[in-house]
Amino acid sequence: MKTRRYLLLLSCLLLGSSFILLPDWPNLDILKDYPKVGETCSIDGKSNATANKKAQNRLKNRYRMPVNNVFEEMTIQDIIDLPSGTKVIKPPLNSPNHSRAVSVIGFVKDVNFGGTKGESCNCGATDRGMVDTHIDLVLDGNDTDETGKNLIVAEVTFRTQILAQNGLLASNIGNKWTKKNLRDRLLGRRVKFSGWLFYDYDHHGETWVVDPDNTFDRNNWRATAWEIHPVMAIEVLN
Rank of each mutant, 00 (worst) to 15 (best):
K2W: 12
R5P: 00
Y6T: 14
L8K: 14
L10M: 15
L14I: 00
S17A: 07
S17V: 12
S18F: 13
I20P: 00
L21Y: 04
D24I: 03
D24T: 02
W25F: 14
W25T: 06
D29I: 04
Y34T: 11
V37I: 13
C41L: 07
N48F: 10
T50H: 06
T50E: 01
K53V: 15
K54F: 03
Y63G: 04
R64F: 15
R64E: 13
V67N: 08
Q77Y: 13
Q77F: 08
I79N: 03
I80L: 07
P83I: 07
K90D: 12
P91E: 02
P92E: 14
L93F: 11
N94F: 13
N94T: 09
N97Y: 15
H98D: 05
H98F: 15
V104I: 14
G106W: 10
F107S: 08
G114A: 11
G115F: 14
G118L: 11
E119C: 07
D127I: 09
D127H: 11
D136M: 12
V138I: 09
K149V: 11
N150A: 10
N150D: 14
A154P: 04
T157V: 08
A164L: 06
A164P: 04
A170G: 09
N172Q: 02
G174N: 07
N175R: 06
N181C: 05
R185I: 03
R189K: 15
K192V: 01
S194V: 05
G195I: 03
Y201M: 04
H203Y: 14
H204L: 03
G205C: 12
W208H: 05
D213M: 11
T215E: 13
D217K: 02
N219F: 06
W221Q: 04
R222C: 04
A225G: 13
I228Q: 03
V231M: 07
A233V: 02
V236W: 01
